[in-house]
Structure formats: C-alpha cells, structure tokens
Design a protein around this nucleic acid. Structure first.
Lengths: 184, 184
DNA sequence: CGTCACATCTGCGGATTCCGTGACTCGGAA
DNA sequence: TTCCGAGTCACGGAATCCGCAGATGTGACG
C-alpha cells in the first residue's frame, strides 16, 4: 500500500514549522523551541499502538501504555482534535484503479505560491512540497492511465503561468511505504 | 503534516477499533500480490467511508453504502486480509519531533535492487520508488535535525555500493497532502 | 500557606457496537 | 439442475464506547 503523504490538517500546518496548535489558553509560554514538546511519551506510545492497528480498542491500548480506558480515549480524542494524528484507511493505488503515478520536479519563475495553489486544486495531485535544490516544487501525481497522466502533465501543469519547466519521473515500482513516525 | 505516502485523511473524526499486530510485514507492503481488479464499486464506497474515519462503525458504513452491517463487516475484513487497505494512524512528522525531511534522487550503477534493499532497511527512509527518468530511485527521508539528515545522506546513502550520485531536495514546506483514492 | 482554576486520571453504569452463527435467497458457473 | 459465493436478517452474549461524576495534582495568586 501506499499512498499520499500524510499529514495533518491544513489549518495549522501552514508554516513555520508546525507544531500544531493547541487551544488557546493551554500552552503556557512560547512554542518556538520545542516542536516535540506537544506530545509526551505516553501519547507517543498510544500513537504507536494505533499505527499498528487503527481500530485497536481503548482498553487494550490502555493496558499497553499503562492508562485507564477513559484516559486513553481522552488523549486519542485530543490528538485527533489537535491534528497531531488521524486514523484512516490507506490503500494501494494500484489495486484501486490508479495504474500510473509520477513525481514531477517543477521550476517556476517568480512567486511559487500561485503555482502551488493551482496544483493544489488538481485532484490528481496527491502531494506538493516546496523544496530547496534544483527543483522549486516536487509533486506526486496519481492517474488512471497513461493518457490521463499525459493530459495532466502536458495540458494542465506545463501550461500554468509561471511554470518554466518540468521534469517527470514515472513510477516503475513502489518499493517501500511507511507511516510510522513516533514509532522509532 | 505529511509524510509517507498513504493515504487518507479527512477532516476530523475518529473512532476506533483495532486489532493489533506487530512486526514488519503488515498487510500492505510486501508481496507482489496483485489483487488487481478485485475491488468493486461498493467496496470502493466502503473504503471511502473509512478514509474519512477509520473507526466508523460498520452499521453506519452500511447505511451509507447500502449494505447490511454484516456484509460490511465481511468486506472490510476481506479488504484488510487481502492487503487492499489498512486502517492506521498517520501523524504529522513535525509535531512528533522530525523537523528535517528531504527527497533524494539517486543514480545507481547496475542492478537497482541491492541499493533499494539497503535503503529499505534504513528507518529514516520513509518512501522508495524506482523511477524512469533522470533518477533511478527517489526516496523520501525523515530526520530529527540537520545533523541527522546529513549523516544519513552523506554517511549512509552515498556510501552504498552501486550508488553513483545523489541529489537532495530539502523540504521547505509541505503544501498538500492527500490520500483519497477511490474517492474521486 | 490556603484557594481557585484547570488539566488529567480513575470508576462506573448504560447505550452501542462487535462478531459468530444459522437460515434463507439470489444469481452465476459447472 | 446443482454447487457455491455473497447478501440479508435475526439473535444474543461479549466487548467496546462514551458521558459523567469524584479524586488528584499542579501552577497562579492573594
């Protein structure tokens, strides 16, 4: 399986590093120095449990991390509300009908935002990152077939104002796919 | 957030459930099993439901897709067994302590497999794809800080036998992250 | 040093959900 | 026609979920 890159909710991740925000009053002082401070060891352990199985019962998780069922429930809810994690089904694009995928390296003239926003609006674009290096943007595209892929790249991406050039990397084989962060 | 590839996400929601399981080979990533073509429209609808909320009750899903609770239960179980999908927690690397990420384009001399396997063994490597284009492999790396990233790229990847050259694309900002296939 | 505010955890029922089981129906393939 | 996979319906006990008090702990403040 595989799939998109996970993430978090867009609202908070906008920039600066994102640590996700907490409600209003809670955080006492300044957030800048500890991105990791948001999640303590116990919550990390809970996340680990849910990375193994997103539907594991709260009681079982509690037993594993040393908390009561109710406490686990509260923490999970908070982690979800804060956007620290999400519990979802992930699929393998191939088995669901998307047989062509590609990574696109893009170079832009001027401001990247307009281009990034336009790409954001395309449903075939699964992933967008602004990078430092010989490409300004790297995007992952998931299509149904070659015609579809060609249309997206040639007709929709390369014609966007600001796009100077693109380079395609068609996926031949997905070798690894993980999604276990706090887990190590 | 972002990160691995996978999938789905949704607004918020939650719920739970779960089985647990362990080791490395969870359903999804390994075999060459091509269950292709095996997913009909109804199962797709079920997957869609679970992409919105991995813990949604079977009865609710049934109501949404027009099947009985029992039928949904059977299908979900089969989809999981077949490795068509997985229900897991996905997190935002940044909030869990990983502040440096990068995409690496790699060129190899000779057989790609040995190199891919070696990369596969590295825990910092989150994603590996064999591609057609000016790079033979593209891998996503998730690290704690710059030192960590440097060590991985310079000391561990570039020294692998067969690796001819690498090009790094350090992530400046994750702009989009999705994971909803059957969903469109 | 008390006290209030707030966050978190534990217990505890009641409502839901999960899940195996058995009976019957409905095409499609042999 | 018969066999078989897949669904539906119904059941009922076990397990899970979920809201709601107390109990506890800590930091801020007078």
């Amino acid at each position: 399986m595989h799939s998109g890159r996970v993430v978090s909710r867009s609202a908070d991740s906008s920039n600066g590093h994102g640590t996700s925000r907490v409600p209003a009053s809670a955080a006492g002082s300044d957030p800048s120095r500890r991105t990791s401070g948001t999640v303590d060891a116990v919550s990390l352990a809970i996340i680990e449990q849910l990375q193994e199985d997103g539907r594991r019962p709260y009681a079982a998780i509690g037993k594993a991390v040393g908390l009561s069922e109710a406490a686990v429930r509260q923490r999970v809810q908070k982690l979800l509300d804060q956007g620290v994690m999400q519990i979802v089904a992930v699929t393998d694009p191939l088995t669901v009908g998307f047989r062509r995928q590609a990574m696109l390296g893009i170079n832009v003239d001027g401001d990247l935002e307009p281009v990034a926003d336009a790409l954001d609006a395309m449903k075939e674009v699964e992933y967008i990152v602004i990078t430092a290096g010989s490409f300004d943007l790297m995007v992952e595209i998931v299509c149904e077939d070659d015609d579809h892929l060609l249309e997206v790249i040639n007709k929709r991406v390369r014609t966007l104002p600001g796009v100077r050039s693109t380079e395609s990397f068609v996926y031949l084989k997905l070798k690894k796919q993980t999604y276990m962060w706090g887990t190590r």
